[in-house]
Design a protein around this nucleic acid. Structure first.
Length: 473
RNA sequence: GCCCCCGUCGUCUAGAGGCCUAGGACACGGCCCUUUCAAGGCCGCGACACGGAUUCGAAUUCCGUCGGGGGCACCA
């Protein structure tokens, strides 16, 4: 990869939750290659899942990547010559491409019902057959009317094999018969990932696709689409998957995966990047502390390992410490007081402060790993002790998946819940307040929740429930 | 069940047939420095999954076994 025409790489996150470390991990290498070749790094939002995509999630992805210094040359918010950069705004293109495939006999309409597909699947699993579409509609030449529910499926070759060269793994091959006729346009008219990614990567002139190992098995489908369209496919690099300590694919249940968490915890973006670069890749000279520019000038895919690294935080801690020690005090001061977390806390406590020092006492609870407070505080005055656990459980459940994580809507949720159950608002709010802050005195509850973040909020509710359970037994 | 990827210290990794009695970093243990804690210094613990084959010689090549992971959606 030394010679190198300008490369175009993209990160294509789905705006369906908190910005993920995996997104940063891929972006890091995308940007490195783009910079190294004086090419471009593109951000494309893959919001073809109408049910799960949200605008807030998209916004936090922008924010998190910018925090890390992984800015993009083209994207939904900055524009660019290949836009729009949001898949939901490119629908006509996918439709047109899919219809073209149907015209050319590379794809077909399918009217099989979800019920039939589910039943088929069950049978196959029961018969210990690999699950997959049985191609019933493949040669029927169906032309469903627009009001008739249907999908479009691509035709995979029945024989032969797909061979491609992966930049990190070398030659990979797989018989076509192992891939079924994938849906490329859903019944809601939206493309599936498989169609959209190919169409967009081509139309955005992407030269290198860097993505997780999890995509290896669908690469033959993608290559087949390129072939059907008559387009030249990009180069593929399948990076190893980040793992939990138990070696499963990294997940938020077992690891903090939200970039927002790292930001709030006070990790430095440059240390985070350094750490991420060290997972699966190494500098030719073996140095472990290096800048993003060092990655840019040294990155090659042949130094990427193929086995999945465990995403373990102790090394990140150590690296972060080294960065902190390496800063001059003025720089450090700057960083400390610009921290967004502190800024967010400020309005909550300002009206309660009489001296500057009170800022620290009033916000200490934001930082505690585990609050220490007397269990009896969890039982509000005039409340029945046995009621408290169910309040906390109900509140937890109510907000666990709730979006957006903002004070006003959260307050609405809580008030609704309390009203439904005919509970006492003051008592319920007080119990939650103590669980979250360890004290009966705190800034307004839901504003506190917003700043504290979902993760810590849920964690502290759990902790309070645990305390109450201990007391009961 | 089928297909694919992977397998060096607890963890991240170096290693592309002899330079390997396998190197570094994190973590861990000890000592030193020190009013404490960190930081720093020194020392230590600690791995080529297993079995065959190829070779004068294998962590490095090939095969098998075992183990881990991923995929098999109208999710990405």
């Amino acid at each position: 990869m030394a010679a190198d025409a300008p490369a175009r790489l993209r990160i294509a996150p789905s705006p369906t939750g908190d910005p993920h470390v995996g997104t940063a991990y891929m972006s890091l290498f995308d940007l490195a290659v783009a910079r190294r070749t004086r090419g471009q790094f593109i951000l494309r939002i893959e919001d073809t899942d109408q049910a799960r995509s949200t605008p807030e999630a998209e916004e936090t992805i922008f924010q998190a990547l910018r925090w890390l210094g992984l800015g993009w040359d083209e994207g939904p918010d900055v524009g660019g010559p290949y836009g729009p950069y949001r898949q939901s705004e490119r629908l006509p293109l996918y439709r047109e491409c899919a219809e073209q495939l149907v015209e050319q006999g590379h794809a077909y309409y399918c009217t099989c019902t979800p019920e039939r597909l589910a039943a088929l699947r069950q049978q196959q699993i029961a018969a210990k057959q690999p699950p997959g579409y049985d191609r019933r509609c493949r040669d029927l030449g169906l032309r469903p009317r627009p009001d008739e529910p249907h999908v479009i499926r691509m035709k995979m070759p029945l024989e032969g094999e797909s061979i491609f060269t992966d930049l990190v793994r070398g030659e990979l091959r797989r018989p076509f018969k192992d891939s079924d006729d994938q849906v490329i346009v859903k019944s809601d008219g939206f493309p599936t990932y498989h169609l959209a990614v190919v169409v967009d990567d081509h139309h955005m002139a992407i030269s290198h696709v860097v993505r997780g190992e999890e995509w290896i098995s669908s690469t033959p489908k993608h290559l087949q689409l390129y072939r059907c369209f008559g387009w030249e496919p990009p180069r593929f690099a399948h990076m190893p998957l980040l793992r939990n300590p138990d070696r499963s694919k990294v997940s938020k249940r077992k690891n903090p995966t939200s970039l927002l968490w790292y930001q709030r915890q006070g990790y430095l973006p440059e240390a985070m990047l350094n750490f991420l670069a060290l997972l699966g890749w190494s500098m030719p000279d073996g140095r472990e502390i290096f800048s993003f520019d060092d990655v840019v000038s040294n990155f090659t895919f042949d130094r990427v390992v193929t086995s999945g690294p465990v995403f373990a935080l102790d090394k990140l801690q150590s690296i972060n410490g080294q960065y902190i020690r390496g800063m001059d005090p003025e720089q450090l001061l700057e960083r400390l007081f610009r921290r967004d977390y502190v800024r967010a806390q400020l309005p909550l406590v300002q009206e309660r402060m009489r001296t500057l020092n009170e800022f620290h006492t009033a916000t200490a609870f934001f930082y505690a790993d585990e609050l220490s407070y007397d269990r009896s505080l969890l039982i509000p005055k005039k409340a029945a002790p046995d009621d408290v656990p169910q309040w906390l459980k109900a509140v937890r459940q109510r907000i666990e998946e709730f979006r957006p994580w903002r004070a006003v809507p959260l307050e609405e949720q809580l008030r609704e819940l309390v009203a439904e159950q005919s509970w006492n608002t003051g008592q319920v709010f007080m119990a939650v307040r103590v669980a979250l802050t360890g004290s009966t005195q705190s800034p307004p509850l839901t504003e506190t929740m917003e700043v504290l973040g979902r993760e810590k909020t849920l964690q502290r509710l759990d902790r309070a429930l645990q305390l109450l359970a201990e007391e009961a037994s």
